[in-house]
């Protein structure tokens, strides 16, 4: 599903952030990206939908990520950002969930009914016309995920999805993610959550992947509890 070879990237005003990353993700598989802050996890993930474009090869569903294929790639990759507040940028929840569909050219009426369906599925229907600011952290996270799921992506990337969630909220989110059939890439510091939601993990350090393997093994090996 995702195939990355020798990916390198540096920000204009600092040193290299990614130093040759090789990475594979199979369809339907769930992988956690672990590692300390600043190790390059988010920078790496932003390459998977072409928001950043470094040196090396990135393929999503056998499509090479280039400027020309961005639209196609972004249909296949759903990205849930760390800040729900930034992700939910439209003034009402319903419009935000419709945003991706409208960008794909889905007619407004159809987009509206599909968005409402998704909100109902995630128990958010009563918030449809509210300003996202007034939702709780967990509701915001679910609304952000709704806006991505409604586009039926083949890969779901979640950047620190447990931020601001309380323990019941985290359990609820894990249960919800486990019901989703698509491939998932989850960036997280929460090892419990990683074990609950993924089978494999890759450990990032200074822009490299030090190791990958079954999630429990990786967590034990790097003492990442």
């Amino acid at each position: 599903m995702i195939r990355v070879r020798d990916l390198r990237y540096r920000y204009a005003d600092s040193g290299p952030v990614l130093n040759g990353i090789d990475f594979d993700l199979k369809a339907g598989e769930s992988t956690a990206l672990l590692g300390s802050n600043g190790s390059g996890k988010t920078t790496f993930a932003l390459h998977l939908n072409g928001i950043l474009q470094g040196e090396g090869e990135v393929e999503v569903a056998t499509i090479r990520v280039t400027t020309a294929t961005l639209e196609e790639v972004r249909r296949k990759v759903g990205f849930v950002f760390q800040s729900s507040e930034n992700q939910l940028f439209l003034p009402t929840v319903l419009e935000d969930v419709m945003f991706g569909l409208l960008n794909q050219g889905v007619p407004a009426e159809q987009a509206r009914s599909r968005a409402m369906e998704m909100l109902e599925r995630l128990h958010l229907a009563s918030y449809a016309n509210r300003n996202p600011f007034h939702l709780s952290a967990g509701e915001k996270r679910r609304a952000a995920i709704a806006g991505v799921l409604v586009m039926s992506p083949e890969v779901l990337i979640l950047d620190e999805p447990t931020t601001f969630l309380d323990p019941p909220g985290i359990r609820e989110l894990a249960a919800m993610l486990n019901q989703l059939p698509m491939a998932k890439l989850i960036i997280t510091h929460d090892s419990r959550f990683a074990i609950d939601t993924t089978t494999r993990a890759s450990f990032f350090d200074k822009g490299r992947i030090l190791a990958d393997g079954p999630t429990r093994d990786i967590i034990q090996r790097f003492d990442w509890f």
């Binding site: 939908n49 800040s83 930034n86 409208l102 960008n103 407004a108 991505v148």
Partner: peptide
């Protein structure tokens, strides 16, 4: 910083420069 973050989130969901409208 927030506006950059928002812009990334917009791009990730297929934003191509013009906001679609769906007001009944």
């Amino acid at each position: 910083e927030r506006s950059t973050g928002i812009h990334n989130a917009m791009l990730a969901r297929g934003f191509n420069g013009s906001l679609p409208r769906a007001y009944p």
